[in-house]
Amino acid sequence: MASFMKEYEHLKIQLKEIKLATNNFDEKNVIGNGGFGKVYEGELCHSNSEKKSLVALKRLDRKYGQGDPQFWKEIMMLSRYRHENLISLLRYCIEEGEMILIYEHASRGSLDGYLKDASLTWTERINICLDAAKGLSFLHDPNERQQRERHDIISKLPLPKEYEEIVLSATSPLMYTSIEELKGLISKGVVINQEKTWLSITEKGEHIERIYIEACLNLATIKDDRLSHPSAHIVNSR
């Protein structure tokens, strides 16, 4: 647990700063209440800049049944990944028995409050539902989780375009800590194209490819007698 917490040490903020921002958790600063506890608003410095900005602070209240697992899971997920339909986590505080999560402030207020606007059309409401579903899918769908594992790796280790495309197209996530390690994995062969193609790149840069019969039977993947690939530089072979 200590090593896990150390990974997110840079996101910690002192309780005294939160108390100043919320006027010691004054009820006048409460903007919401949910299964985690009360949500306050206040102005904080949450980056290298000394300029303060409005944030939302979610204060854990254990009487609602939530606790450490939910708190750390929220930090792990929302500080690492970005999605247009998710509120980003900026900071957290764990001090003097308090567990507080700090998010970017939603300029239009909470979703439940926004949906009470009688002027919203049904089309707008449906689009809101779809956008919310996309955000939830990004966090919970197994296929989306694989895409988050790959994008996370790529963002930390810049790759040549061809290798990046192979990583993104691999059926199973490729785990590596260096480009040389990745090249070693690919030289042994990687399954891509939704398990329809096996691809290997030798030390000489030669592309060896094996196409499974399912790929040939699926006409949607065939175009101009060439199968689709993650990179146009990969020469097809049969």
Rank of each mutant, 00 (worst) to 15 (best):
E181C: 12
K58T: 01
K183P: 09
D112V: 14
P158R: 10
E162M: 08
K223D: 03
L15N: 07
Y40R: 01
L54T: 05
G35V: 05
L89P: 09
K161A: 03
K188Y: 06
Y81L: 07
R210I: 10
M77T: 07
N23K: 12
V235T: 13
I87H: 06
I153G: 04
I128H: 08
S155C: 09
R62W: 14
L101R: 08
T177V: 11
H10D: 12
K183N: 09
E84M: 14
R80E: 11
K188S: 08
G205D: 00
L111A: 13
M77Q: 04
G189A: 07
S49A: 00
T197H: 14
G34T: 02
D131I: 00
D152K: 12
E84Y: 15
E209G: 04
E214G: 01
E50A: 04
L217I: 08
E164Q: 14
E162T: 05
G32A: 02
E50L: 08
F36N: 05
K116Y: 01
E162K: 04
Q70H: 07
N48Y: 06
P158I: 06
A215Y: 15
E17Q: 14
L60M: 10
S88P: 13
L219Y: 03
Q146S: 14
S137L: 00
Q66V: 04
E7A: 12
T221C: 11
D224G: 10
L199Y: 07
R125C: 14
S172V: 11
G205C: 09
K183S: 01
G37S: 02
Y212P: 06
H140C: 14
Y176E: 10
Q194H: 10
G109D: 01
L60K: 05
E124Q: 09
H140S: 15
E43A: 07
P173K: 14
Q146K: 14
E41V: 04
Y103H: 11
N127H: 02
G135Q: 11
E96T: 01
Y8G: 11
S178G: 10
Y176R: 11
E181V: 04
K204V: 11
E17T: 08
S169M: 03
E41K: 03
K116I: 08
N23I: 07
E124R: 03
A106Y: 09
L182F: 10
I222H: 00
L90E: 13
K156Q: 13
G37H: 00
S237A: 09
